[in-house]
Structure formats: structure tokens, C-alpha cells
């Protein structure tokens, strides 16, 4: 927890294993550079299927999920699926979305209590900066 690789990291953060799930590969590349430079292990998945496969063999400290990928609600579906896995039960899930905060309750139409059974820890509005995500990770992992 106290070994920042390159001096960017704060005293009590990491190194973490972070999973970013987003269909925007440029965004993934940037997060890889930003968090990688801070000594964290960054794993990326550019689709829900990719994420499900990676998580067969990965124990992340935190997962960042994009909401809108294959479908407008892919992030919810993925989170719901992942929460069923024993090793992911208590891992913080952070949902990134351009519209989720404003329209979150509308996803209830897809299934009662979707928001609660996905057990999301945080919503972050897009576009989000690395610094914002770092602050969220520090808060959730402290």
C-alpha cells in the first residue's frame, strides 16, 4: 500500500489491480497510461464478453464499468452478472456513464430494483478524468 512506483501515487494508495471495461479503446489506453504510471496494474476489457472472460482469472481491487456498450444498459447487466461471482461480491464497482445519473431510475423498467441488485458503489459522470477516478478509487479502497 505504500510503494508508489513512480512518485505519482499518494502515500496510501495501491498498488491496485484495476479493471476498466469500456468499448472506447482510446479511453482504455489513456487510463492504462495514467494509472499504469502510478504503479497500478491496469487490465482493460472492451466488451462485456471480454470482461466476463478476463474475470474468470482476475481478482481486481476495483472495477470501472462503462454503462453504454453493446446495449444502452450493458453496464448494469454486466454488474449484475459479476456480482453473482463469489470473488467479486465485495469488490467496488464504479459505473461510468454519460447519462446514468440523470436517467438512472428509468432502468428500473428493465427489472425491478436493477440499481440495487447490481450493488453499484458509485456513479461517475462521463467524461471523467483520471484524477477524478483516482480520487474515487482512493475513497472506496481506503
Amino acid at each position: 500500500m505504500s510503494d508508489p512506483a513512480n512518485g505519482h501515487g499518494s502515500a496510501d494508495s495501491g498498488p491496485w489491480t484495476m479493471l476498466f471495461v469500456d468499448d472506447d479503446t482510446d479511453f482504455l489506453a489513456a487510463q492504462e497510461a495514467f494509472f499504469g504510471s502510478r504503479g497500478h496494474k491496469v487490465v482493460t476489457a472492451d466488451s462485456s464478453a471480454d470482461a466476463l472472460e478476463i474475470l474468470e482469472a482476475l481478482n481486481p481491487d476495483i472495477v470501472f464499468l462503462d454503462l453504454m456498450m453493446e446495449r444502452y444498459d450493458s453496464g448494469f447487466r454486466l454488474a449484475h452478472e459479476l456480482r453473482k461471482r463469489e470473488h467479486l461480491k465485495d469488490v467496488p464497482f464504479v459505473m461510468l456513464s454519460g447519462v446514468a445519473r440523470e436517467t438512472g431510475e428509468r432502468f428500473d423498467q428493465e427489472g425491478k430494483g436493477l440499481l440495487s441488485w447490481t450493488k453499484l458503489d458509485r456513479f461517475v459522470d462521463k467524461p471523467a478524468t483520471g484524477r477524478q477516478l483516482l480520487a474515487v478509487a482512493e475513497e472506496l479502497l481506503s
Binding site: D26, F27, A30, F34, K126, P127, T129, G130, R131
Partner: peptide, 12 residues
């Protein structure tokens, strides 16, 4: 989405 990607690239 593109704004987010560009924003992140500038940040990096």
C-alpha cells in the same frame, strides 16, 4: 464518448 477519450489523452 469521444470527448471523454480526448480529455483522457490530454490528461495523460
Amino acid at each position: 464518448s469521444p470527448l471523454g477519450a480526448v480529455r483522457s489523452i490530454i490528461e495523460v
